[in-house]
Amino acid sequence: MKALEVTQATKRFGGLVAVNNVSLSVNQGEIFSVIGPNGAGKTTFFNLLTGIYPPDEGKILLFGKDVTGLPPDRIAKEGVGRTFQNIRLFGAMTVLENLLVGMHIHIRVPYFHALFRTPLARREERRAEEEAKRLLEYVGLSQRKDELAKNLPYGEQRKLEIARALALRPRLLLLDEPAAGMNPRETEELQAFIQRLREELGITIVLIEHDMRLVMRISDRIAVLEYGSKIAEGSPEEVRTNPRVIEAYLGKGAAGGAA
């Protein structure tokens, strides 16, 4: 069973075809990258996967289950966590509260238990808080527990967003440009961190990334989008030497040069 299987997905915005007939599949446990020039449709592709937009055409299977057209909250419940290109934390909540929101679907407290704060509600809240704290430790944000998310420095906000996605206990994690704005050292840390997620938690990871060094080192396979269409797919080596990819990145006539 594939972690993700997309067949001929298309999304149009008016006349613009943001995602054009894209098919691809991701194996379980894989680290898979989606790359492409600005405006190629990468983020829109993620938005199709997470249900923010239903695809106009095509089909999306998650771990063998057809989720085409389901709303984002249902897809999240299927075990898909994500981060956003332009960080979307709950800024006025604390770091810990952000994680607790991420754990929403795993905190099993019925409404009336919450209303009266019954022993069950207390127990579940305490358990959730413990788990959130463990997660903060895992990503190295323990010191920041009670700070407002918006007051964190940029790099830690990125980390927190990943942690919030992890709080969902995802099987599939979608990261939209996680290394954006990071210096080479931070990027290296990030690479190690993502690899740890796969090794230790067994999560399948799809990432969008512009940093080619990171992409080439970390990915098992890569898909390349241009103008909404998939123009190449394969191992880092195959993609690096693919003439169409070189052309897409460096312009016509550059094929055959260095990538």
Partner: peptide, 28 residues
């Protein structure tokens, strides 16, 4: 009680950012 429960947090999350809240599994 509600404010300190998953319901209160879900309400605040929706108020702050609907898209992010839904992506956390909170039905709108």
């Amino acid at each position: 009680n509600l404010a300190n429960s998953r319901f209160g947090r879900a309400w605040v999350a929706i108020r702050e950012d609907e898209v992010a809240a839904r992506s956390m599994g909170i039905p709108l």
